[in-house]
Amino acid sequence: MGEVLVVLVLASLTALATGLGAVPFAFVSRISSAVEARANALAAGLMLGASFGLAAEGTHRGGWQTMAGAVGGVLFILLVHRLLDRHRFSFETAKSVPGEAAGGSAAAAKRALLVLIVMTAHSAAEGVAVGVGFGGGETLALAITVAIAVHNIPEGLAISAVLRSQGVSLVRCAGWSVFSSLPQPLLAVPAFLFVELFQATLPYGLGFAAGAMAFLVLQELLPEAYGNAPARAVSLFVTVSLVLMVLFQRSL
């Protein structure tokens, strides 16, 4: 019971960290797309570093099982995206809904809703990562928790940027940002209990989280970053945060 509580509290902290993305808007009215791109690149490096940590722990326990889990993680994200696409929800449409330039409030509200839905769908995989991270030991768990918490801040920044431009208050921006990450504590606990009860599934779970997170980086964060900042700036942010993330995991 004590361990479950720890998982719940730490996974809740990662969700709360998303709210920090609203903080810059206490000082500035808007964030440029170039800054958002660099934030995405930073998040991409942290996520890749966390994926490396999960994959390393998984392959240590079983290479083929970890790879099978990674395939499952990629398929999970593809399935989520297919469901979102069916309802015309995607990362691109979330960033620019046609008609918004005309200043239509309905389009603006739709954009805010899209961003929220897409971010919420993403955080499901991150919740599983936190849960299985605890199954892999305290060191890995702490590293993954910190990585996802720090990575959540740029996600909160993206959500707050859209909401703030619609005149939503700072507190509500933070609140909706946290809301988008609620699947993290909600899925972290069952994921942890599952790998605890069925130890043999741990490498599959670690692979699932690693595959899902790496796929999100390649399919969404990087293209989004390349679209709004020079490749060399994106590369610098990704590689530096990746190296620091790996060093952090190693230093624990």
Partner: peptide, 26 residues
Amino acid sequence: AYLVMVDLLPRSYQEIGKTSISLVTL
């Protein structure tokens, strides 16, 4: 890692869709 991010991946994304690039890379 720097070379992949600064040169290879951006050129890949320019040519075809990001989903197939992500799958092939992974």
